[in-house]
Design a protein around this nucleic acid. Structure first.
Lengths: 258, 258
DNA sequence: CGCTGCCTTGACACGCCTCAACGAGCGTGG
DNA sequence: CCACGCTCGTTGAGGCGTGTCAAGGCAGCG
């Protein structure tokens, strides 16, 4: 199987085959972690960086009143805590939402890259900065968009991210998330998320099917939210910058009846 | 006058006097920018990093419906767009809220630091990671806290950040922000911000006075929100890690009647 | 002196939250 | 094989927090 980190990074960086080999060498031995378990906890001072290879994880914080906030979804190819060594300790926790395979990369291996493979180091920094860009967009979303658009925007984003990781197949978006977790992500109550999903389905924009989401017409969903993928800083998927190579296969894009 | 960047960085990093001198040399020539003007605009590909020296600036995005979201306050000592070169183009804009003095640091000067002064480079990365931590906390705030606590939390944060930059005097927090801008920051309507400020004042927690905010009892305000400053990753200000040097002077801390 | 920007206030509507109950799926143990 | 308990999804009723609309006040300034 492909390395999702390489697939992702090559969407925003030019990597030589030597670079790719370097990355592949970093990400060899996997650990399996069951669902719903902390990978890193608040206050930890980890000396290794975790890379999600399969499954879905999230960053989260819990408030005193047990309110919880999910601040990021970590899909295959995402790094959990790049350079946490610099800032000292984790100010939040990371846990699995499904069973995950992760790779632990020693901090020192990453540090060495900046001298031995600056191009790879640069690509890793790119991924960090991109995570920050996503965070900003989430803040806008929660602060200024109504419920329907919050959810819809998240789905658009995930579609593009999963596509960039080469993980969309059969026109279905992986979405192994409970409504409660979704609520904690978009800043709504569980019950209102339920009603919101019902509305989205009723408008034929998107609906949950098993542990996936079906989006019959992505461009219509994007139009609905005013989605602008430029904050993802990646090429392809009908974005502004054209790529010479083929885009990833996506089907049912033009079905668009309503 | 002191260099606010050095003051800030030394709150989270150990800097030698040589390091401080290196930073001071980077931040020499200042530019003055009037209030309410873009420093960097969405889509720009700047080749210099902007450092705020005096005044207040913000990151923001504007949605189609003219809704605006402010995603960060940039106080003296804050870097606007560290390593934007890596990610390509700005996915948001930065503008002044008051008249500002800024310093433009060429990207290449920053890049050189990683080899010539790794300790300084590390401190700059620290500031980037801290900005991300603040962003996460804002997301929690907007997503899961009621209006009063959103505003109160922001005030607590700003108090600690201004203190870390050495800019609190007379027990007053600089706050040259209109209610509309505050509304765009905490994700509320202008009118509701007005009512919220009234409530905070009525409960003797905090109130605006001119372009500053008066907080009669910071610990009471922090208790009210459940403020935990650990996400700021800085030492001092009555935090968990004790410093040997005196804390900055703060008055009326123990007044706490209600 | 009349702008204009910002703050303030009231009335009302609506989006979202809370409480409460029920249903569907599924693994487990009797 | 069925009863059970658990988690997750679904639905309804009612209330509260926040948004919207509308109007006015006050200070700064040309």
């Amino acid at each position: 199987m492909n390395n999702p980190l390489i697939t992702k990074l090559s969407r925003g960086n030019h990597l030589t085959s030597a670079d790719e080999e370097t990355i592949a060498r970093l990400t060899s031995e996997r650990i399996r972690i069951p669902a719903d378990q902390d990978i890193v906890s608040q206050g930890d001072r980890p000396d290794a960086i975790n890379l999600v290879v399969t499954g879905l994880a999230c960053r989260y914080k819990t408030l005193r009143n047990d309110d919880r906030s999910i601040m990021a979804f970590l899909i295959p190819g995402d790094l959990c805590d790049l350079h946490v060594a610099i800032i000292g300790s984790m100010d939040h926790s990371i846990k699995t939402l499904t069973e995950c395979e992760i790779v632990k990369i020693p901090s020192r291996a990453i540090d060495r890259l900046s001298t031995t493979h600056p191009n790879v180091a640069r690509a890793l920094w790119w991924s960090l900065l991109r995570d920050e860009a996503i965070l900003r967009e989430w803040l806008v979303c929660v602060g200024r968009r109504p419920a329907m658009k919050r959810v819809a925007h998240l789905l658009c984003e995930l579609w593009h991210r999963y596509t960039a990781a080469g993980l969309i197949s059969g026109g279905r978006l992986p979405f192994p998330v409970t409504q409660e977790e979704l609520a904690d992500t978009v800043g709504l109550s569980t019950i209102h998320v339920n009603r919101t999903l019902k509305s989205l389905k009723h408008q034929n924009l998107a609906w949950v099917s098993g542990k996936t989401v079906i989006i019959p017409d992505l461009s219509r969903l994007e139009l609905f939210v005013g989605f602008d993928q430029s904050y993802l800083h990646q090429i392809g998927n009908g974005g502004k910058r054209e790529v010479e190579g083929r885009s990833h296969p996506r089907q049912s894009f033009e079905r668009g009846e309503s």
